[in-house]
Amino acid sequence: KELVLALYDYQEKSPREVTMKKGDILTLLNSTNKDWWKVEVNGRQGFVPAAYVKKL
């Protein structure tokens, strides 16, 4: 599985998104969309802005 690092805090704005804190390590589930990547964090799956994370 591929991991990404949260570069910034992000507060979810819809049920399809997830909240993350700067420094969190997230599991990358899908990065086919250039703007929104699907990740898993704390057992929850959802989208975060691709610009807010970096592949490890």
Rank of each mutant, 00 (worst) to 15 (best):
R44F: 07
V18Q: 03
V4C: 09
E12V: 07
G43P: 04
N42Q: 11
T32P: 04
K21A: 09
E2V: 14
I25N: 03
T32D: 15
K55F: 09
E12S: 14
G23V: 00
A50P: 05
L3R: 10
A50H: 03
V53C: 08
L7P: 00
Y52R: 06
D35Q: 12
S14Q: 09
K34N: 13
L26Q: 01
T19N: 07
D9M: 03
K54N: 07
K22A: 12
E12H: 10
A6T: 03
K22E: 08
Q45S: 13
Y52C: 09
V48P: 00
T27P: 14
T32Y: 11
E17C: 07
V18T: 06
R16H: 15
W36V: 03
R44D: 04
L28R: 01
P15F: 10
D24T: 08
V48W: 00
L56T: 08
V4W: 10
L29E: 03
K1Q: 14
L56F: 09
F47D: 04
T32R: 12
L29R: 04
D35W: 14
L3V: 09
T27A: 12
A6V: 14
L28P: 00
Y8N: 11
Y8T: 10
K13T: 15
G43Y: 06
T32M: 10
W36Q: 03
V39E: 00
N33Y: 09
L3D: 05
P49F: 02
L56E: 05
A6R: 01
P15T: 11
Q11Y: 15
N42S: 12
K55A: 09
Y10V: 01
L26R: 01
P49A: 02
F47R: 04
V4H: 03
V39K: 00
E12G: 14
L5F: 09
L5V: 14
L3F: 15
Q11N: 12
K38P: 02
M20E: 00
R16V: 15
E40G: 05
T19S: 13
K21C: 08
L29I: 14
I25C: 05
W36P: 00
Y52E: 02
F47C: 08
S31C: 09
V48E: 00
K13D: 07
D9E: 07
K38H: 15
K55L: 15
W36I: 03
W36L: 03
E17F: 06
E12Q: 14
S31D: 14
K1C: 08
E2G: 10
M20I: 14
L29M: 08
S31R: 09
E17T: 09
Y52H: 08
K22G: 05
L56P: 04
I25E: 04
S14H: 15
F47E: 05
Y8D: 09
R16W: 15
P15K: 13
L29N: 03
P15R: 06
G46Q: 02
T19D: 04
K38D: 05
K21G: 06
M20G: 00
E12D: 05
D9C: 05
V39M: 02
L7Q: 05
Y52D: 03
G23P: 00
P49C: 03
D9P: 06
L26C: 08
F47P: 01
Y10L: 01
V39Y: 00
L7H: 04
K55D: 05
D35T: 15
L26P: 02
S31K: 08
V39P: 00
A51K: 12
P49L: 03
N30A: 12
Y10P: 01
V4Q: 01
V48D: 00
S31N: 09
E2S: 10
W36D: 02
E12F: 07
K54L: 11
S14T: 11
T19W: 04
T19I: 03
A51E: 11
D35E: 14
L7T: 06
W37H: 03
P49M: 03
N42L: 11
R16M: 13
K22L: 05
Y10M: 01
W37K: 02
W36E: 04
V53T: 05
D24K: 03
K54Y: 12
K38L: 15
D24M: 13
E40L: 09
Q45W: 08
V53N: 00
V39I: 08
E40W: 07
N33D: 15
K54Q: 15
T19M: 04
L28C: 06
N30L: 10
D24S: 08
L29W: 06
K34T: 12
A50S: 12
R44L: 09
P49N: 03
K55R: 12
D24R: 03
Q45P: 08
A51R: 14
A6K: 01
G23A: 03
Y52N: 06
R16A: 13
N33G: 12
T19L: 03
S31P: 07
S31T: 11
L5W: 08
I25W: 05
N42V: 07
D35G: 11
K1V: 14
V18G: 02
S14E: 10
S31L: 05
D24W: 12
P15I: 12
K1R: 15
Y10Q: 01
L56M: 12
Y8H: 11
P15S: 14
A51D: 12
N30I: 10
L56W: 09
L3A: 07
E12R: 14
M20R: 00
W37M: 04
A50C: 06
Q45T: 14
K22V: 08
K34L: 11
E12M: 12
L3G: 04
A50W: 02
K13W: 04
R16S: 14
R16T: 13
L3P: 05
G46A: 04
K38I: 15
V18H: 03
V39T: 01
T32N: 14
D9A: 07
E12K: 15
I25K: 05
N33K: 07
R44G: 04
G46M: 05
I25Y: 07
V18K: 02
A50E: 04
G46T: 02
V4K: 01
S14G: 13
G23H: 06
E17A: 06
I25L: 10
G46N: 01
W36T: 02
K1L: 15
T19C: 06
E2M: 13
V48G: 00
Y8L: 11
